[in-house]
Write a protein that binds this DNA or RNA. Structure first.
Lengths: 201, 201
DNA sequence: TCCGTAGGTGTACGTCATACTCTAACAGTT
DNA sequence: AACTGTTAGAGTATGACGTACACCTACGGA
């Protein structure tokens, strides 16, 4: 009976993501999203209750294509590695979304799906009770932290500041030198390997 | 020659921290801090250039008492455990500061001091070159992530939502049941143990 | 006693999220 | 073909935020 909606929830999510990818998370405003869609600011509120809901929407959009089916690989540590790398890959193209992923992780269906699969793998690997709780949280902690270090890293404040501050920190300075030779991929994978080795012992 | 300052940088930092502890990070505004000090909003700008600098100040305040001297314990994994637990303890009383810790970690002298000590321990344990880079970043990732999971956890959005969402996720639901029996202390320590075991292998 | 400097105040602006009110487009019914 | 109820979208307004700017004023050395 009533007037049909002119934009789909999907288009809304994509427009929001486009704004974030172009102007960063700081550029995400209700106005910007509305402009992106060719609407007035308030029209956006026909589709989401508030900014918070819009953020949740964009997180889901990013995780939509996240494959959470159990990998066929063996052993189980390899399955976990693949699952974890998949999250990183999904977020990789949209660094601005990382802080949103952190703050909306609770209500995110995508994160829930991922956690379910991971928990299943842990179950099959013999993790039960508190051990499984700790394992899941530990893995999740690493992922959350690593993504933030990777993407929020050099953003706020110039990296040069850190270098000059390194004067009184010899060990750190030397480590920083070596860090230039280590790519983000290896860094993430390396930390993940540490985590997985710890789980396997 | 000029008029003396009526508040010390220290008092400013403490006032800011008081605001955060009382009203949360969302309550941190230049006005709130000014009121806390009995000043007008703009007077605060005599002490900090902008809000960003005020945030950096409060992070440093929280980490001021952080003991970054190398622990006397053995083996080196135990040293790392103690160092990591110290950070958690320092932040523990001020959950609202956690997001600031994340975003200001680069310029934070406290984090730098801590990283230097950790790197030193890793050096003594035989970690060199890229291996040390990965180890430091991995540990830092875990700490950052774990603190956020712990403190940002049940805050945004009611935990009940998660429970209802758990319907289609049997493994996760069972894990959540067990999670109630696991305290935050054990959870953090347990994840840390996984990390350290992985480093030691 | 006076004066330059720096601390503190008052006011104002632009941007943000969002509440409220109004207009108008559409789908069914008569 | 006119009418009507429902809802999409526009317009306007509000209060909070960070902060620029111009001013006033208290102080200590001369």
């Amino acid at each position: 009976m009533p007037r049909p909606r002119s934009v789909s929830p999907d288009r809304l999510a994509q427009a929001t993501l486009a704004v974030i990818d172009r102007d960063g998370l700081a550029g995400l405003t209700m106005r910007a999203v509305a402009t992106e869609l060719g609407l007035t600011t308030m029209a956006v509120y026909r589709y989401v209750a508030d900014r918070d809901e819009l953020e949740a929407l964009v997180v889901e959009e990013v995780l939509r294509t996240l494959d959470t089916s159990p990998p066929a690989a063996e052993p189980w540590t390899e399955q976990l590695r693949i699952l974890t790398e998949r999250i990183r890959a999904a977020v990789g193209d949209h660094p601005g979304v990382v802080p949103l992923l952190v703050s909306h992780r609770h209500r995110s269906a995508g994160v829930l799906r991922w956690s379910e699969t991971v928990t299943g793998v842990l179950h099959a690997a013999g993790f039960t009770g508190p051990r499984r709780v700790v394992a899941l949280r530990g893995l999740l902690s690493y992922v959350i932290g690593a993504l933030q270090l990777e993407h929020l890293g050099p953003l706020s404040g110039s990296g040069t500041v850190t270098i000059s501050e390194l004067a009184g920190h010899p060990h750190l300075a030397e480590t920083a030198r070596h860090a230039r030779g280590v790519g983000a991929d290896e860094e993430f994978a390396g930390g993940l390997s540490i985590m997985l080795r710890g789980l396997a012992t």
